[in-house]
């Protein structure tokens, strides 16, 4: 997923688009039906591929070879075989495990280091503060490809290639400019008096960070967390390059990319594996949609 620019606005109100029901379609009848028709078509079109994936992953091998996924609607015949095959032969469980082992620490570290960096950048006065901010803005859009040649050599040199901590290191470093930027605006909107009050109450800088900054930034940290997790979980390029030669099962994206090329297992298990790979991010986005929306808008919208 692409990373978006701009620093966060004031903490966005809790509803992005959710919860507005007033001011709906007006105008003449046929126009209204046209609006509904276009919207429904749009939504259907966007949903069909996901439905196709789910149904394909559940259909028996014989059905899949003979007819398209939509035939499961009039002729429902479902089986869990594909999922069993995916686990048995495609190392999906191992891959999901590797993906988790990459994504969870990456997420936590991105959040922590982003809060630390954003707090220092927003709340401390020092020469070079603007320069650093501008540098980070510029780095927001750096294509990852520019980093590959030197880092592959460096990783080989210090023995980080093929290791999961190596992936953490890369993904955290790469996501930090975005993280700092998402948090910047939010932390800047915490009233200065709170920090001063805490200082007069006897709190050290570290204590203020732990007792004031961290708890107050929870909502925006959740937003950053979802986005960081998604990027890490969905990343193909970096694990593809940096996990080479590892004895661990490849992360799920790398595993899938490899499976597409070889058609020996058939469509079903591949679809099952793919559905399993999208299940975690889908559940995450659906259950934490508000934070996800805030992350996207906070990282992008301005003006």
């Amino acid at each position: 997923m692409s990373k978006t620019a701009r620093q966060s606005a004031v903490p966005l109100s809790s509803h992005g688009f959710i919860g507005l029901a007033a001011d709906r379609v007006r105008g003449r009848g046929h126009l209204r039906w046209l609006v509904h028709a276009v919207v429904l078509l749009f939504v259907l079109f966007w949903f069909v591929p996901i439905l196709a994936l789910l149904l394909s992953s559940l259909r028996p091998q014989a059905e899949t070879a003979a007819s398209g996924w939509w035939m499961a609607l009039p002729r429902p015949a479902f089986t869990a075989t594909n999922y069993m095959l995916a686990f048995d032969q495609l190392r999906v469980a191992g891959s999901l495990g590797t993906s988790l082992a990459i994504a969870i620490p990456t997420t936590v570290l991105v959040i922590l280091l982003s809060v630390i960096g954003a707090y220092a950048l927003v709340r401390m006065n020092f020469a070079g503060r603007t320069a650093i901010s501008l540098l980070l803005v510029a780095l927001l859009v750096t294509p990852p490809q520019i980093t590959l040649v030197p880092l592959l050599r460096l990783y080989n040199l210090v023995g980080l290639s093929g290791t999961i901590p190596g992936i953490w290191l890369y993904q955290v470093g790469f996501t930090l400019p975005f993280g700092v930027f998402l948090l910047r605006g939010f932390i800047a909107s915490i009233p200065q008096e709170l920090f001063e009050s805490a200082r007069l109450d006897g709190a050290s800088e570290l204590r203020i960070f732990r007792s004031i900054v961290l708890p107050l930034s929870r909502p925006i940290m959740a937003s950053l967390g979802i986005m960081a997790f998604l990027w890490s979980w969905n990343d193909l390029l970096i694990p593809l390059l940096f996990m080479g030669g590892s004895s661990l099962p490849p992360p799920i994206t790398v595993n899938l990319a490899g499976l597409v090329a070889q058609t020996t297992q058939g469509q079903g298990p591949l679809m099952a594996a793919t559905f399993l790979s999208v299940l975690v991010p889908l559940v995450l986005v659906l259950s934490l949609q508000r934070h996800f929306v805030r992350g996207i808008l906070g990282g992008a919208v301005k003006g």
Binding site: I18, V25, V35, V43, I50, T253, V260, S277, L286
Partner: peptide, 26 residues
């Protein structure tokens, strides 16, 4: 302009959670 905007929006957001790799398979 429609009252089921949250649902429509949710469905359009869903693919943003999916990896390019999985999208390619789909």
């Amino acid at each position: 302009k429609v009252s089921y905007e949250p649902l429509a929006m949710t469905i359009v957001i869903l693919p943003t959670a999916i990896s390019f790799t999985a999208g390619a398979v789909i």
